[in-house]
Design a protein around this nucleic acid. Structure first.
Lengths: 220, 220
DNA sequence: TTGCATTTCAAACGTTTGTATGAAACTATC
DNA sequence: GATAGTTTCATACAAACGTTTGAAATGCAA
C-alpha cells in the first residue's frame, strides 16, 4: 500500500491556496512550498496540475452534494414527505453559506474552494461540472412535491435565483459591507440564510415569509 | 496629432477576445493577431498589458454607469421625482441584461466584457473597482426616495439581491437552460428583466408585482 | 543483508509569457 | 527634398510556468 502522506499534504495545501487566492495565480511551486514537498511530487502523485484540481473538485463537490441531500432528507422527513419549501431551500443554500460566511476562524476551506470554482471556472473543472445538473434536479423534484401547484418553469427560476443570491453574497460580501458601511452584517450567517430563503420563497409563492427556521426545528 | 488607428484596433480586438474567452487565456499575441498589428504596439500605445485592461474597464464602466443613470433619471422624471421602485431597479439591471442576453447577434461585446470583469476579477481591475460603490449609492438614494418608509439595511439587501440575480443569470444562463431543458427562455430579455425586478421588488416591499414595464412607459 | 519497488529530490527542459530594443518605415514641417 | 518626430516592425530577452529525467533515498519482503 502506497503511503499517501505527501498526497494528502499536497491536496490540503492546494485547496487552501486556491481558496485564498484563486486558481489564476497559484503555481505548482506555491503549492509544493506550502506543502513542504518536492516540486516533482505533484506530477508523480497526480499526473498533472489539472488532475490535481479535478480531484479536489470532485471530492468537494460530492461532499457538498451529500450534505445538501442530507439536509433535504431531514426536511422531507420532518414534513412527512412534503417538506416546507423554505426548508428545501435552506438545504440548498445553507451548506455553502455556513461554510463561507461567519467569523473568519470558522469558515471552511472546502466551502471557500467551491466558491472559487464557481467564480473562476478553469477548463479542467468545466468539463466535469455537468453532474451538477442531475443534483439540482433532485431539489427541483423536492420543490415540486412541496409546491405541487406551481409550474416547473417557476420552480427552475426560483432555484436559480436562490442560488444566485447565495453565491453572490459569498462572492462579493465585501461590496455589500462597504456599500452599507457595515450595516449589513454578512457574518450573521443565520440572518443571511433567512434573507436569501425568504426572498426565494416569495419569488416562488408570492407570499411573504421571514425564511427563518421554525422554532421546533431550530431547537434540535 | 497622433494617429490612433492602431490604438483603436487593439482596444476592439482585446475587448472582443476578453469578452469571449476571459482574461485567463488571452495573450498579447492573441490580441495583436486579432487586431493585425505588431506585437510591440500594445506596449507602445498602452505601456503594459495591465494598462490596456484598465483602460478598457474604465471606459466601459463609465459607459455602463452613464446608461444606468440615464434610465434612472428617466424613471424619476416619469414619477415626478419619486420613481416607481420597479423602474429604479430596471434602470439598475436592465442595461447589463439587455447587453448580455437575447439573440446571439445582438449581444453587445462591451456588456459581455463587463460580465467577464465581474467573473474573473484580475488584479489590474480590482484596484479600480472602488468607484462602483459611489455609483451604487446613487441607486440607494433613489430607492430611498421611492420607498421612504423602508430602512436602509433593507434597501442595501434589495439592491444586492437584484444585482445578484441579474449577474448570475448572465453568468450562468447555460446552467439554467440545461436544468430546465430549455423551458426557461433566457433569450426573452424582457421576461428575464421582469422576473429579476419582480423578485427584487417583493424582497423590498413584500408585495407581489410582475415587475413588467407599465403600459404607458413601454409604449414610448 | 540482499534485492526490488516505491518515493523523493535537485536539476534541467521546452514553452509561453510580457516586455525591451534598435533599426526601418512613415508623416509632416520647413 | 532634407529633417525631426512618430509609429511600426522583427527580433531578442528574462522570467515563470508545467513537466520530465535520472539518480539518490527509502521502505519492505526474503
Amino acid at each position: 500500500m502506497p503511503s499517501d502522506q505527501t498526497r494528502t499534504a499536497i491536496l490540503a495545501a492546494a485547496e487552501r491556496l486556491y481558496a485564498e487566492r484563486g486558481f489564476g495565480d497559484v503555481t505548482l511551486r506555491d503549492i509544493v512550498a506550502e506543502a513542504n514537498v518536492n516540486l516533482a511530487a505533484v506530477n508523480y502523485h497526480f499526473g498533472s496540475k489539472d488532475e490535481l484540481i479535478a480531484e479536489l473538485f470532485v471530492t468537494r463537490s460530492l461532499a457538498l452534494n451529500k450534505e445538501r441531500l442530507r439536509e433535504l432528507r431531514e426536511a422531507e422527513e420532518a414534513g412527512a414527505g412534503r417538506a416546507d419549501i423554505a426548508a428545501v431551500l435552506r438545504a440548498l443554500v445553507g451548506p455553502t453559506l455556513r461554510g463561507c460566511l461567519g467569523p473568519e476562524n470558522q469558515r471552511s476551506t472546502p466551502a471557500r474552494f467551491m466558491i472559487r470554482v464557481s467564480i473562476e471556472s478553469v477548463p479542467a473543472i468545466r468539463r466535469i461540472r455537468n453532474r451538477e445538473i442531475d443534483h439540482l434536479r433532485k431539489f427541483i423534484a423536492a420543490m415540486r412535491r412541496s409546491l405541487p401547484d406551481r409550474g416547473d418553469v417557476e420552480l427552475y427560476w426560483g432555484l436559480h435565483f436562490a442560488l444566485a443570491m447565495a453565491q453572490q453574497t459569498v462572492r462579493d460580501s465585501e461590496r455589500l459591507a462597504k456599500l452599507s458601511e457595515g450595516r449589513c452584517d454578512v457574518d450573521d450567517v443565520d440572518d443571511v440564510i433567512a434573507r436569501v430563503v425568504g426572498v426565494a420563497v416569495m419569488a416562488l409563492t408570492g407570499a411573504k415569509t421571514d425564511g427563518r427556521v421554525p422554532e421546533k426545528l431550530a431547537a434540535r
